[in-house]
């Protein structure tokens, strides 16, 4: 009989790890609290830098793990340590003994309504990056008007924000904002589009090319200054205030749509859970890797491994690479090497 490996979370990290574990001859068991696989990526429209449909990635992964055991709409009620592994108890009554567990529980999207000054949930035309992707994917959204004349993107919403409890940069939002700004400009060629940023952190393959393209071909304007306050005008447009730090002057502009780049934050439930089996939690609330250079996949407990954004903010390719690395690491561990 093939050996079980429990994977907590059915996002792309869990799926990619399951695929590799199947190839290595194990029986991966994915436990996912939602009713579908793919996590945040399943809601996404297109992935930078190649603009490939996110759905294709999720579909490919789903097909590749058809032989895995997958429990949807299932939660883990407890994990108990054994002398040589774990027993994972599920909300459906199943309990699984195993020697290795992979934590792939991902991140939470920052709740943008916590930044009260931006009025998410209060003003009619304030949405998040995630809402916009859903709209690109065909979901109805009455907050997005038919013919916007001006659109703004606010970078770093809940990220790099000590007051919101998150010191970390979410890495992907700068690039996502550039990508979404271009996609919106393609749909609304007459709209003025502004990105309000503090620093542009465009570190990945081809990201800078996107930025140059956004400036030159799409005329997207980048304003260095964090939006401090949003109000709604009598015409139900948005009045946005920021400092134009390069001019050294306050700036205001009226917009028809404001997109908040909600960051990646830790899942507090996971941190709570981690304490029950003495997994270390990092100062940013994410699960703590054994070390952040050579041991990102490893936890402080034998047999417990990590992949993806449960240990910190990650891009999609980083997550997939970590999932593969974790599968190999688990294989090494189970071979006793």
């Amino acid at each position: 009989m093939k050996e079980n490996v429990v994977i907590i979370g059915g996002g792309i990290a869990g799926m990619e790890a399951a695929r590799q574990l199947l190839l290595l001859g194990y029986t991966p068991i994915i436990v996912e609290k939602k009713d579908h696989l793919g996590g945040h990526v399943a809601r996404w429209h297109k992935l930078f830098p190649d603009m490939a449909p996110a759905g294709d990635l999720v579909r490919r992964l789903s097909e590749a793990i058809s032989e895995a055991n997958i429990f949807l709409e299932t939660r883990i009620t407890s994990i108990n340590r054994l002398s040589n592994g774990y027993v994972v108890m599920l909300s459906n009554g199943v309990s699984i003994p195993c020697r290795a567990v992979l934590g792939a529980s991902g991140f939470r999207l920052f709740d943008a309504s916590k930044k009260e000054e931006y009025g998410y949930g209060v003003y009619n035309h304030v949405i998040t990056n995630s809402d916009l992707e859903a709209w690109f994917n065909g979901a109805e959204d009455p907050r997005i008007v038919a013919d916007p004349k001006a659109v703004g993107f606010v970078h770093c919403v809940g990220s790099r924000d000590l007051k919101a409890g998150n010191s970390q940069c979410s890495k992907v939002c700068c690039m996502t904002a550039v990508k979404q700004a271009i996609e919106l400009k393609e749909r609304f060629p007459d709209a003025r589009i502004y990105c309000f940023y503090m620093d542009l952190r465009l570190f990945g393959k081809k990201y800078e090319d996107f930025y140059i393209n956004a400036q030159q071909e799409y005329g997207i304007q980048f304003i260095r200054g964090r939006v401090s306050e949003v109000g709604e005008t009598a015409e139900e447009r948005l009045q946005v205030k920021a400092e134009d730090t390069l001019s050294g002057k306050p700036l205001k502009v009226q917009l028809d749509l404001l997109v908040l780049m909600s960051g990646m934050v830790c899942n507090p439930e996971v941190a709570e859970f981690a304490r029950t089996i003495r997994l270390d939690v990092d100062s940013d609330g994410f699960l703590k890797s054994l070390d952040n250079v050579g041991g990102i996949n490893r936890s402080n407990q034998p047999g417990f491994f990590y992949a993806g954004a449960c240990t910190g903010t990650k891009t999609v390719p980083e997550t997939l690479a970590e999932a593969r690395a974790a599968a190999l690491d688990i294989h090494r561990y189970l071979l006793g090497k």
Binding site: S113, G119, Y120, G121, Y123, N124, E232
Partner: peptide, 10 residues
């Protein structure tokens, strides 16, 4: 303006 949004904050 979404009144319920304000109520939530209140």
């Amino acid at each position: 303006m979404i009144y319920e949004g304000k109520q939530k904050i209140w």
